[in-house]
């Protein structure tokens, strides 16, 4: 069941993005983006809010389609897949939503069992054991009968994580896994991501802007801005590579290449002073 850890090789790229271009509501999100996500590693995609990090994850899973360019996941072109093939691909991809997205109709156990029930005809005993194993992995076996509205944010995210790994996927996409967690819960999630990556060899893609957390676990960091990868490397080197992008982002400066202001027309004109007599 467990995916063997593959050594990083030349074909060690699980997700290959080439020339990705997306325009949403007249705003260019991605501008001929090229990106390679290595197999078996924890890759963090960082960037200021609104740079389309979540959109990128939706592209990878085929929930959204780009205007141009291609995305290959494990050698398959996502945009060219039929509905059945896409669904087959998604069975091998876990996705952790920002707000956990547990099904409110079901309790914790049934939420984790949901993908199994939908896609397999396993006997009830086996489903039960599989689900309890995954819940044990996230430390919530005792909460199996709680309803989603009885869980704290951190617990809900761990349940969602258990659900995402129930099929032992080869790729997990984490959409802002650290947002809104207290330090204890954050460290628990952090530990889980690392454990899953190390023990199961699951390729992990993190979208986040929690610098400290990312530096703890990521093997590879990509900094996304203005629709392009502006810097990448391992977390140690990228922080001191000296480019203005990284300096601003990791230094937290208010203004720099990442603009403070949303693009707008001339200020004085908009206030109505342009034609005023001097």
């Amino acid at each position: 069941m467990t995916q063997p850890v593959r050594p990083p090789a030349d074909d060690g790229t699980l997700v290959r993005i080439r020339g990705l271009t997306t325009v949403l509501n007249g705003k260019t999100i991605f501008d001929a983006l090229d990106m390679d996500i290595p197999r078996g590693k924890v890759t963090a995609i960082m960037g200021p809010s609104g740079t389309g990090k979540t959109t990128l994850l939706k592209h990878i899973t085929g929930q959204m389609h780009a205007d141009a360019g291609s995305i290959h996941v494990d050698g398959r072109n996502v945009a060219g897949l039929s509905r059945e093939d896409l669904y087959k691909l998604r069975e091998g991809v876990g996705y952790l939503f920002q707000n956990s997205a547990l099904l409110t109709d079901f309790d914790v156990f049934e939420n984790v069992a949901f993908p199994l029930r939908q896609h397999t005809k396993l006997p009830e005993v086996l489903i039960r054991n599989l689900v309890l194993m995954k819940l044990q992995a996230v430390g919530l076996r005792g909460a199996a009968r709680l309803m989603p509205n009885e869980l704290s944010g951190g617990m809900a995210r761990r349940v969602a994580l258990a659900r995402a790994i129930v099929f032992d996927p080869q790729l997990i996409l984490y959409d802002e896994p650290f947002v809104g967690l207290d330090p204890v819960a954050l460290n628990q999630v952090l530990k889980l991501i690392r454990t899953l990556n190390k023990t199961l060899g699951i390729t992990s893609v993190l979208v986040s802007h929690e610098l400290a957390a990312v530096q703890q676990i990521a093997d590879h960091v990509m900094l996304l801005s203005n629709g392009k990868v502006v810097a990448q490397g391992d977390p140690k080197t990228i922080a001191d590579d000296g480019s203005p992008w990284t300096r601003q982002f990791f230094g937290g400066e208010a203004d720099g290449p990442i603009p403070f202001r949303y693009p707008a027309g001339d200020y004085a004109t908009e206030l109505g002073f342009a034609g005023a007599p001097k």
Partner: peptide, 22 residues
Amino acid sequence: GLMRATDQISAMEMMAVDPIAY
């Protein structure tokens, strides 16, 4: 509407469950 607001519909799609059919 609430299932959409809380990403439950997207989650189903990600779990390869067709939300229209389900």
